[in-house]
Design a protein around this nucleic acid. Sequence first.
DNA 1: GGTAAAACTCGACGTTGTGTAGACTTTCTG
DNA 2: CAGAAAGTCTACACAACGTCGAGTTTTACC
Lengths: 204, 204
Amino acid sequence: MPGHHPARSRRTTERKGDVRERAILDTCEALLAQQGYDAMTVGDIAQGAGITRGALYFYFGSKQEVVTALVARTVEHLWERSRATAQTDEPRQAIAAAMRRTVELWNEHGLVMRTAIDLSLTVPEIGELWSHTADLFITAIATVLERAGVQAGTEPEQASAMARALCWMIERTFYHASQESCEELQKASSTCEHIWLISAGLIT
Amino acid sequence: MPGHHPARSRRTTERKGDVRERAILDTCEALLAQQGYDAMTVGDIAQGAGITRGALYFYFGSKQEVVTALVARTVEHLWERSRATAQTDEPRQAIAAAMRRTVELWNEHGLVMRTAIDLSLTVPEIGELWSHTADLFITAIATVLERAGVQAGTEPEQASAMARALCWMIERTFYHASQESCEELQKASSTCEHIWLISAGLIT
DNA sequence: GGTAAAACTCGACGTTGTGTAGACTTTCTG
DNA sequence: CAGAAAGTCTACACAACGTCGAGTTTTACC
């Protein structure tokens, strides 16, 4: 998201700026882990990336923009991974696969995902990104529910609304579990999978 | 949370400071609704309460402390209300009553509850307050599940873990719905109640 | 009702972090 | 190799935070 300069033309060699930009995002991610969003200053990020504050403002207009770009990068990865997952028609398998993938995603990107959730309210751009991501998951869950025999529709007890609630359950449960440990994440996954299966009517 | 002066002795007439303190908290709540936490400055709060910044710092040590006090006041109210709710042994009734109460709470205090959730990460005090509140709900849900026949225990598919996931589902679903409208809140409640009932094995 | 302590209020100050401006150097492109 | 684009830096202006010390009001007690 180089904002200032127009779309970069195709090139063989990487511009210096591309490297810097990645360095900034990487540093931002590291600092986010160490100190959290509030404590992290743009001076810290710049220093970590080996440039001065002034130079950083050449790449990003503000601290929020840096984090937004980081979230965008991560979310992009989520989408990619979601598309890559093999689709199966059998609900039980689909649910198991989805939860497995979710554990992986939270293991790898838990920090950025938590940050995205936290900043959704204050940074509209990030809220947009995250709610769009959630929508993807919600429709996926709804599809599985319908395939398992839950009545389609948007009324409170039909597939769409249930999928939404289940999505938030998963989000929040993983959000907390990923702050603890990998084992907690695994347990959280089991619990969520169990409730999803029950909700789909696949186990009593 | 008058921090500076020791525990106030019992008195008939209210101190001027008590009035001010309430005014500060009320103003804070109002501003939180209008502008959100970040946009709201200490100057704004002081002005709204009819005092200067300097005077505000007599009552509270920081902006965070003001909001923490506001959350504490609200959470106090939640606990009170929870205790007051009639306990029933019949799971179906208990669930219906709990959801009814939850809708009421979010209708009345949705704004402060959302703020508490948002700041849980950055303000440890608030995180403490909120996680304690969540624990109350989790044990309540677990009790109902067990009474309905779900196996007690903390393993991923037993009552405690399920209660935790259901609690987060309710929290998050209401969090989003309360940003929309009362009707959304009502629908959210129906959906959550439905999933809770299914999870308890009370409906197929 | 007077007086000392406390509760309370204020304006001014120092600090930190943000974002901007403008001058300067490097790198690309023709 | 010259001009443009890309990249970098120091210095500045500003906003909000939190602190200080000096005042004013209220309260408690004799």
